[in-house]
């Protein structure tokens, strides 16, 4: 696998979640191509010096989310037919997570939906000027 996963065990984010997010991000960015093989649970555990069960848990979550598929005896592979749709789905997922954090914070500061809507529009206008 060309992608080098890294984990920060000292973070408050669970390690399995770090792996899940990194693999999702890598597939969204196309760094991980569909059909590409992921390292075995043991190999990744040794590479990162983390518990094999933690890696296995991350792989289970990724499989449940439809990002990878595992066939016994062969290993784990990035799912998808290589079409744009699946890549977009993964990208949307990553974006939504980032967005959710921002919206939660905004709401807790007392902004209303209409206020947040306006903020989003401003940001979108800046990044997609041609679609204004």
């Amino acid at each position: 696998m060309p992608v080098v996963l890294t984990v920060d065990p000292r973070s408050g984010v669970p390690i399995y979640q770090q792996i899940v997010e990194q693999v999702k991000r890598s597939t969204a960015l196309g760094v991980l191509q569909s059909g590409e093989q992921l390292p075995t649970v043991k190999q990744l555990a040794l590479d990162l010096t983390i518990n094999p069960n933690t890696v296995a848990r991350a792989y289970r979550d990724l499989e449940r989310d439809g990002v990878i598929e595992t066939s016994p005896g062969r290993g784990s592979f990035v799912k998808g037919d290589g079409d744009a749709a699946s890549t977009r789905a993964a990208a949307s997922d990553v974006t939504r997570r980032a967005f959710e954090g921002a919206v939660r914070e905004a709401k807790s500061m007392g902004l209303l939906r209409a206020d947040i809507d306006r903020v989003v529009d401003t940001v979108l206008d800046r990044w997609f000027p041609e679609e204004r």
Binding site: V41, K42, A45, L46, T49, I50, N51, P52, N53
Partner: peptide, 10 residues
Amino acid sequence: VLNLMVNEAA
């Protein structure tokens, strides 16, 4: 040592 522990668990 930690890696060897991981290896044992695997």
